[in-house]
Design a binder for these strands. Structure first.
Length: 821
DNA sequence: TCCCACTTGGTTTTT
DNA sequence: CCAAGTGGGA
């Protein structure tokens, strides 16, 4: 009897095939972690591989921790010498040793998104970028995408030939990298990029790591991006013992640069690769699995596979709908309580999953009211709270004076009477002398332009220098407490009447306990290492698992986890799938969203509850969304309640009890748009915001009047959106048919949509189109034109029109609402 | 320089 | 809804 006897045939193959490249296609719940851990055990115990020659890479620290624990439990000794780590920590470890070869200091700092934004803002100001045209966010995400693809600023510039915007971005990218280098800082993406650069620039370094990591395993391979793949490829290039494990159906990080081709084309890169499919699911009941399979089947680009289970049918999937998100939260919370009463052993068996972090709020409130222990994964990161960032900025400044961002953050916190003007002057001096901001501070008395303000800078510098000298004999805890004491930071909070001052103080206390626990768990605690650990924690890493808390998290965070009871909340088109993906013209986006649904469903072992709220407040506006298309893709016999079937033209009394505000910019003039209230067109309103209000009821009424493209009304310009109040009234309106029910998009941003985007599933019957090729038509936005082509798509007609003014446009008939002339 | 009140713009998911 | 930005007054 060996530990391998419990594995099925495919799993055994995955464990025993240790030579050469291996692609393990592991469906949800098919025991891939088991295969990986047993494989490590096999390599060590049966194959005589030294533990330190094995590397296992995961995406989160939590996954790494779990893997380590499981390896420990099946192999007695040496397990701790297996390198189990995340991509980012791996790179940091390598870079801490060798990045000086790329001209950085080995004690570089790691910039988080906030720091990146600060840098970018500064650059935009200096380069006089019009941030109305090119937003900082856009710039940063362009740079991030470039890095994911290993495109350097120079490459970017070359690719930008002739493209004005791209060329501009290239310039910013270049400058951004220069600033980071000057500050001795790397952003998240750089960690990977620089490691690759290092390996390419220093073959001897690469080779030492190749010899070290003779057997490499990569978990969640479907989420790797091009840069990460290159890193792995380089490391594995000498011995080619590379085992990657993944599931193309669970690829949900395209927005982060994940390249699904990495998994789909693995066999092309490694022609000799062994491909093993794990298709038996050990996690979920038949019903859950059937539902998941039914949903994912709607994706076109995927490797074909058939997940099956020996588990019983299980209960049907619970589907519940509610009028409001409040009632939804109430139900979920009550249901959890009920399960506990009826014998569920701990709250930790339940997880509530949702699409966006914002959705946690209402659920949390209910859990608080009911007194049920819960934990929210993610949301506002502990380490991105203001007070924590301030404290860390002090530590960073003490650790690495070249980090200008950190220095500037704290130079006037608490207030020292050092204002923006002074900071600009110091920066100018620093630029002139080509030194860091902090070094400029040290020479403050040399800076002519700041005059008497120099006197205020000296104490700050002295303070930092003192901290540095104390670092010799201080523990980190002592240092932190000294910083708090000397700066008077907490004291200031205590004296302030700010209502969340108390929270902030508590957070600082929590930071201190984190420092203490860091010191306790590390042999040689040091400041740089602590800051680095802090920089690399993922939200999921931070959940303190006492096993008796309901977990609330996004679907993304839930990947890799499983629970006996899972709730998928907010299953509404516009929420999930998000309206971003619904309105996207890239069909791949909705597929990624569907994979997310697949991930969500397959988290459940036996009990899955799907909830829907007809009405939901999101971003300060009430939305009315139809049931998620993903729910509709689940065969009805798997659900325990039927989807509502609304008969068309079923008139009902509609009580309008709340008028909600919806504002949009009325430019460009004449633009058609969708809001949650239906389709509409902007009318002239001056250049100010106009207030647009309409109830669902009115929408129906007016579309019956046959206004093409909807109906328009502008309220008095002078009246601000918030102040308009209308009297509720009841109107008889037709209920929506399911088809009509679909094209609902959130308000706000959706105001900028031209009604043309492919939202429509509401296929018009061929006979209802009264125009054809050659006819003259009018479009609400583009004016008059001639129909040149009509093509029947799966859902709708695609109409090509050459407009007199706007040129050729291709649009869906249901949306274009063309009028024959 | 600081502080307040008010306006404005932005909103998915995350290592 | 919320965070960041603006502008006036102390």
């Amino acid at each position: 009897m060996s530990i391998y006897d419990t594995l099925n045939e495919q799993q055994k193959q995955g464990v025993f095939t240790v030579d050469g490249p291996v692609l393990l296609l592991a469906g949800a719940g098919s025991g891939k972690t088991r295969v990986l851990t047993h494989r490590i055990a096999y390599l060590i115990d049966e194959f005589g591989v030294q533990p330190w020659n094995i590397m296992a890479i995961t995406f989160t620290n939590k996954a790494a921790g779990e893997m380590r624990e499981r390896v420990n439990s099946i192999i007695g000794h040496g397990a701790e010498q297996v390198w189990v780590s995340t991509f980012h920590s791996t790179c940091v470890r390598i870079l801490r040793r060798y990045i000086d070869r790329l001209g950085f200091d080995n004690n570089f700092t790691i910039y988080d998104t906030d720091d990146q934004k600060t840098v970018m803002k500064d650059i935009c100001k200096r380069l006089q970028i019009d941030t109305k045209m090119l937003k900082e966010r856009t710039l940063l995400s362009a740079i991030s995408s470039a890095k994911d693809e290993l495109i350097s600023p120079v490459d970017y510039q070359l690719q930008a030939m002739g493209d004005y915007n791209k060329a501009k971005i290239a310039g910013v990218y270049h400058e951004y990298q220069a600033v980071l280098r000057k500050n001795n800082a790397l952003d998240f993406d750089d960690l990977i990029v620089k490691a690759v650069e290092l390996f390419k620039a220093c073959p001897e370094v690469l080779e030492s790591y190749q010899d070290r990591f003779r057997y490499i395993m990569v978990d969640e391979y479907q989420d790797t991006n091009t840069a990460q793949f290159e890193l792995i490829r380089l490391l594995a290039d000498k011995y080619r013992n590379l085992c990657v494990v993944g599931d193309d159906d669970q690829s949900i990080y395209k927005f982060r640069g994940a390249n699904i081709r990495n998994i789909l084309d693995f066999e092309k890169v490694y022609a000799e690769a062994t491909v093993i499919k794990l298709e038996q699911n050990y996690r979920s009941s038949q019903n859950v699995l059937d539902a998941a399979n039914a949903v994912i089947r709607n994706n076109v680009s995927r490797k074909d596979k058939a997940l099956w289970t020996r588990k019983g049918e299980g209960s049907r999937i619970h589907f519940r709908q509610f009028d409001t998100a409040f009632e939804e939260a109430e139900y979920i919370c009550d249901d959890v309580a009920k399960k506990k009463r009826e014998g569920m052993s701990s709250y930790g068996e339940c997880a509530i999953l949702y699409r966006t972090n914002a959705q946690s709020r209402m659920l949390e409130e209910r859990f608080v009211v009911q007194g049920i222990p819960y934990d929210v994964v993610g949301g506002t990161n502990f380490y991105s709270r203001r007070e924590i960032k301030d404290m860390l900025a002090y530590l960073k400044t003490i650790d690495n004076g070249r980090d200008d961002v950190a220095v500037k953050r704290i130079i006037n916190v608490p207030k020292r009477g050092i204002g923006a003007t002074t900071i600009v002057r110091v920066q100018e001096y620093a630029d002139m002398r080509n030194i860091s901001f902090y070094d400029a501070l040290r020479e403050a008395d040399q800076i002519m332009t700041i005059g008497k303000s120099a006197a205020k800078l000296a104490p700050f510098v002295t303070m930092i220098q003192t901290f540095r000298s104390k670092l010799e004999y201080y523990s980190l805890e002592e240092l932190m407490k000294d910083v708090i004491e000397t700066t008077g930071y907490v004291k200031e909070l205590e004296e302030s009447d700010d209502e969340d001052a108390e929270d902030r103080i508590n957070n600082i206390d929590e930071l201190i306990s984190k420092i203490v626990s860091y010191q306790e768990t590390h042999e040689e605690p040091n400041l740089s290492e602590f800051l680095e650990e802090v920089a690399l924690v993922a939200d999921i890493d931070r959940i303190e698992d006492d096993g008796n808390r309901v977990l609330l998290m996004t679907l993304h965070s839930a990947k890799g986890l499983e629970f006996p009871h899972v709730y998928l909340a907010g299953m509404e088109d516009g929420v999930f799938p998000s309206y971003m993906t619904i309105t996207s013209d890239n069909p791949e986006d909705i597929e990624e969203e569907r994979r997310l649904a697949y991930v969500g469903i397959t988290r459940a072992k036996e009990d899955l509850t799907i909830t829907y709220a007809k009405q939901r407040m999101l971003r300060g506006e009430t939305q009315y969304n139809p049931i998620s298309r993903f729910v509709k893709e689940i065969p009805e016999q798997l659900l325990d309640s039927r989807l509502p079937s609304v008969r068309s033209r079923d008139y009902t009394e509609y009580e309008e009890d709340s008028y909600e505000r919806s504002h949009f910019k009325a430019k460009p003039f004449g633009m058609s748009y969708m809001s949650q209230y239906g389709a509409g067109t902007a009318e002239k309103s001056g250049d100010k915001e106009v207030s647009y209000r309409r109830t669902e009821a009115e929408q129906s009424v007016f579309s019956r009047e046959g206004a093409s493209g909807g109906y328009q009304r502008i309220f008095d310009k002078g009246v601000s959106a918030q102040s308009v109040k209308s009297k509720p009234k009841a109107i008889a309106v037709p209920k929506r048919t399911p088809a009509e029910n679909r094209p609902f998009i959130a308000g706000g941003a959706a105001g900028s949509l031209s009604g043309v985007s492919g939202l429509s599933k509401g296929a018009p019957e061929a006979g209802t189109l009264n125009y054809g090729v050659g006819d003259r038509v009018r479009h609400i936005k583009y004016g008059e034109g001639t129909v040149t082509k009509m093509e029947k798509g799966p859902r709708d007609y695609q109409v090509t029109v050459v407009f007199d003014e706007a040129g050729q446009k291709i649009m869906y008939a249901a949306f274009a609402k063309l009028k024959k002339l």
